[in-house]
């Protein structure tokens, strides 16, 4: 018989030096119809394109996810991700005041808040950006449904957590047939408004 230690032991480092944790935690939130879950799936997928990156996406299900606040949480790291849920957020995107009020406390002290500025009027912290995602979607792309894609572009540009090309490829892949151009345009609007805001 094999000894217990040898027995299908998956991992047993000799030095027991724990690698530096490089977790980066993101929450996208809004209410039903904002497409935050899909946006988070696209973001996770784009991050995961890089084989050196690990990513875990969880979302809240059940009564609390219906009607009221909807959220999707993403954890990314170069190393293994143990705890799959978020603990302290590096980035919070909110489409609604309700979600903003509810989740702002989950941000790290230096965490970044990005809001839809037409919906969220009371911004509780300084380290934040506001963009009128839904208005931009209507005015610049001609379709309110792509607000989530604009938001994706904006947070990609602001944080650099995912390369432009990677997110572009995924947005194109996920877009329903015939809407690819519209979605890519929306993404570009997101890149542009964020770039402009960053310069200020």
């Amino acid at each position: 018989m094999t000894t217990a230690r040898e027995h299908k032991t998956h991992r047993d480092s000799k030095s027991h030096k724990v690698p530096k944790d490089d977790r980066y935690e993101v929450r996208l939130s809004g209410s039903g119809g904002h497409g935050v879950i899909l946006a988070c799936v696209m973001l996770a997928r784009a991050i995961g394109t890089d084989p050196r990156r690990n990513v875990v996406l969880t979302q809240s299900y059940g009564p609390e996810a219906r009607g009221g606040a909807v959220r999707a949480d993403l954890v990314m790291a170069k190393g293994a991700i143990f705890y799959p849920k978020t603990m302290k957020l590096d980035l919070l995107l909110t489409f609604t005041q309700e979600a903003c009020d509810k989740y702002c406390q989950d941000l790290k002290p230096d965490g970044l808040l990005v809001v839809d500025s037409t919906m969220v009027t009371k911004v509780p912290i300084k380290n934040s950006y506001g963009f009128p995602f839904i208005r931009l979607a209507r005015e610049k792309v001609g379709h309110p449904m792509v607000a989530n894609v604009i938001a994706l572009g904006a947070i990609a540009e602001l944080t650099g957590i995912v390369p432009r090309e990677a997110i572009r490829a995924i947005v194109k892949e996920f877009a329903p047939k015939g809407t690819e151009e519209k979605n890519l345009k929306a993404l570009q609007v997101g890149f542009d408004v964020a770039k402009k805001a960053k310069r200020k």
Binding site: T2, R5, H10
Partner: peptide
């Protein structure tokens, strides 16, 4: 039973 046992063990020796 040994055939089915699967244990993931980390940093237990010390």
């Amino acid at each position: 039973a040994d055939e089915v046992t699967q244990l993931d063990v980390e940093m237990v020796d010390d």
